[in-house]
Design a binder for these strands. Structure first.
Length: 661
RNA sequence: GCUGGCGUAGCUCAGUGGUAGAGCAUCUGAUUUGUAAUCAGAGGGUCGUGGGUUCAAAUCCCUCCGCCAGCUCCA
């Protein structure tokens, strides 16, 4: 009898006939495991890196469905819902369940792709009529019906020509296209769920009955293969988890995100507005938002000066010619507002600050002794963003970058990049973030025409960024195709209070502009050399960072950033005089204070202060007036009883000075 | 920009062809209040815009503008 050796994760081995399936092994191990098993991981060969059962080379093993016959000695791991890796498989199967349900209800539909995503799955369909919310309901109902029937997900292999013929007969042009592109072996794998048959690499969970906790979320347009100009398909999104609790937790997170939405909180807390009359993507900073911005900027300017930057200001509109020199008219045209004609000359509203800073650098001859030159500007730029991408403060058409350009010599470059990253860490810490992700965004060498500069420039620059990150011990992901047109960059994404990533900090290498503008410095050798240039922004833009802060803090800014720090609440107008004295005293100490002397009950005043997320309330009545004290209430810690006024002032000043978050 | 949805008072929303509504907010008056909403009255809308259908349009049709969810793009 032909047998193979199966090695289990605990190191034990067992002999089994060739062609045994993981499902059978699971049954042998325990009935419970057999019941809970979703998918299997196989590793073939002791050292790994050997062709696996489907010919795929892999050393981390390959996930296969439980019914796949094992053909050679292998290490085998049976995965259940305890293994996070199997969640993708489970969601992918849920996508197939969706497609199967749609096929039942709308037989003529054409299929696109249906992968798992980070909270569930989607599947794409082409159909003349749009799917309505009512359609989604009936599709979801049908999915539950099909799940109830516990239909097996079965794998089939077909020769490629037959596969193509099958899909031609079924009227599935998108699937044919996928097979043409992706199937580079003679046999093509399919998975069936009842009547639904899908060209798919798999694997899948054994049957539809295991899929329980899901909910169809939305339908949205999506281009076939994500390319504009391709056919537009309808994409149905679903959330999907192992348990109803996980699904509920996810839906709860969505509610939480809604509660924090800066587009809602901004107007509610009177921080900013966007007005249709003025145009989309244009931000109005109201007094309270303006005050927060002032506090943010104060911190930033102080840090910039401490860290050896010089502050500059440059015009908002400059000759178009400058943008031709910089290359923006070639590479950035579709993002610029159209030029304005003045005295037969064309002027361009600036989409970036770099050329302005370059002109300052070029205004006189530079010596190697003064490098690095670090020019910083809170520079307001205007970019034409397509209407569909605008989003509150996070994606706008007019914004102020906390921009800086560093001109330096090659042997200074890594230290400068390191200093930028260190500055970014200071920002994260000051504003209360403790998690982040880092991407190294490189060019896509397959389309060099989309970029300025030579291949060797790109390789050298990317190496410098990579070295610095490695030396600093910062983990990062390499992202080809994500670079700016003028150079590779390091992007820092910070993770907010509810786990969402936001891309803010960017440190960009630029070997394009120094050459185009003929930048020089006189070296130690008396000869002229070209400086390197780094373009960096910590917050990205003040607008975007402010939006992120609003959501991170859910509108409840820490004391040092709160536009109103204390609301003084007189119990009745009998103590109006004392309330005014308290207010004046706080104001004198530099505390941002508001006196709520409305003819309202204390409870109503407290409620309004709470809703405005004011950090402290100072309740004053007869007792407090008697004792020169205030009764202190904090927006989240509640009533902490009476405190001498003088102590309260000192406590506030200390907390604000410490920038406690 | 593309696909779909939406647009009624400052805000949240009801109103499916027949005289524009509610709660909150605002204003006025009363009340003098002790840790998350005191009571009463008043004012406020050419129903996003422009056109069309109809005796009659918030309601049906078309145009444009804006917003929302995605796609694509991005600080």
């Amino acid at each position: 009898m032909d047998t193979i050796q199966i090695t289990l994760p605990d190191g034990s081995t067992r002999q089994a006939p060739r062609g045994t399936t993981p499902a059978e092994i699971a049954r042998q191990i325990s009935p419970r495991l057999a019941k809970e098993a979703l998918v299997a991981r196989v590793r073939v060969g002791a050292g790994g890196g050997v062709a696996g059962p489907t010919g795929m080379v892999s050393d981390s093993g390959e996930l296969v469905e439980l019914s796949r016959p094992l053909e050679q000695d292998t290490r085998l791991e049976i995965l259940t819902d305890k293994n996070p890796e199997s969640l993708e498989v489970y969601r992918h199967s849920a996508a197939h369940l969706l497609a199967a349900a749609v096929l039942e209800l709308f037989p003529g539909v054409q299929f696109g792709i249906g992968p798992p995503i980070d909270y569930g799955f989607f599947y794409e369909f082409k159909r003349e009529q749009p799917f309505t919310p009512a359609d989604l309901e009936s599709i979801e109902k049908k999915m539950r019906e099909l799940a109830e029937k516990n239909i097996p997900n079965e794998r089939k292999l077909l020769p490629k020509p037959e596969a193509l013929k099958l899909y031609e007969q079924l009227g599935q042009p998108f699937k044919c296209e996928l097979i043409e592109e992706k199937a580079n072996e003679p046999m093509v794998s399919f998975y069936t769920t009842g009547k639904f048959i899908d060209f798919c690499r798999g694997p899948h969970i054994p049957s539809t009955g295991r899929i329980r906790a899901f909910k169809l979320m939305s339908v949205a347009g999506a281009y076939w293969k994500g390319a504009e100009g391709n056919a537009q398909l309808q994409r149905i999104y679903g959330a999907c988890f192992y348990t109803q609790q996980d699904l509920d937790a996810y839906l709860h997170r969505l509610e939480e995100a809604k509660r924090r939405d800066h587009r809602r909180l901004g107007p509610e807390l009177d921080l900013f507005s966007i007005q249709e009359e003025a145009g989309p993507g244009m931000i109005f900073w109201h007094p309270k938002g303006g005050l927060v911005r002032k506090l943010m900027e104060d911190w930033l300017r102080d840090e910039l000066l401490k860290r050896g930057y010089d502050l500059v200001f440059t015009p908002h509109i400059m000759r178009l010619h400058l943008w031709e020199t910089s290359g923006h008219t070639n590479f950035y045209k579709e993002n610029m507002f159209g030029p304005v004609e003045v005295e037969k000359d064309k002027y361009q509203l600036k989409p970036m600050n770099c050329p302005g800073h370059i002109l300052i650098y070029k205004s006189r001859l530079r010596s190697y002794r003064e490098l690095p030159v670090r020019l910083a500007e809170l520079g307001t730029v205007y970019r034409y963003e397509r209407s569909g991408v605008l989003h509150g403060l996070l994606r706008v058409r007019g914004f102020t970058q906390d921009d800086a350009h560093i001109f330096c010599m090659p042997d200074q470059i890594e230290a400068e990049i390191e200093a930028c990253i260190d500055f970014a860490w200071a920002t994260l810490k000051t504003f209360g973030f403790d998690k982040y992700e880092v991407d190294l965004s490189d060019w896509d060498e397959r389309v060099p025409d989309n970029y300025a500069g030579q291949p060797e420039d790109w390789r050298r620059a990317t190496a410098a960024l990579k070295n610095t990150l490695t030396r600093m011990g910062v983990p990062f992901r390499h992202m080809p195709g994500e670079a700016a047109f003028y150079g590779p960059k390091i992007d820092v994404k910070l993770i907010d209070a509810i786990g969402r990533p936001w891309q803010l900090t960017t440190v960009q290498f630029d070997f394009n502009l120094p050459g185009r503008f003929g930048l020089e410095y006189v070296g130690e050798d008396g000869a002229r050399h070209q400086p390197l240039m780094v373009h960096r922004a910590l917050w990205g833009s003040i607008e975007r960072f402010f939006g992120v802060l609003i959501e991170h803090y859910a509108g409840a800014f820490p004391l040092w950033l709160a536009p109103v720090q204390v609301s003084v609440l007189p119990v009745s107008d009998k103590v109006a005089d004392y309330a005014k004295q308290v207010t004046a005293k706080l104001k004198e100490a530099g505390i941002r204070v508001h006196l709520d002397d409305r003819n309202e009950k204390l409870q109503a005043k407290i409620r309004d202060a709470q809703m405005q997320k004011i950090p402290y309330m100072a309740v004053v009545g007869g007792k407090e007036a008697e004792a020169a004290s205030v009764s202190v209430r904090h927006r989240s810690r509640g009533d902490s009883g009476p405190r001498p006024l003088e102590t309260f002032v000192q406590d506030l000043l200390a907390e604000a000075a410490a920038k406690q978050v």
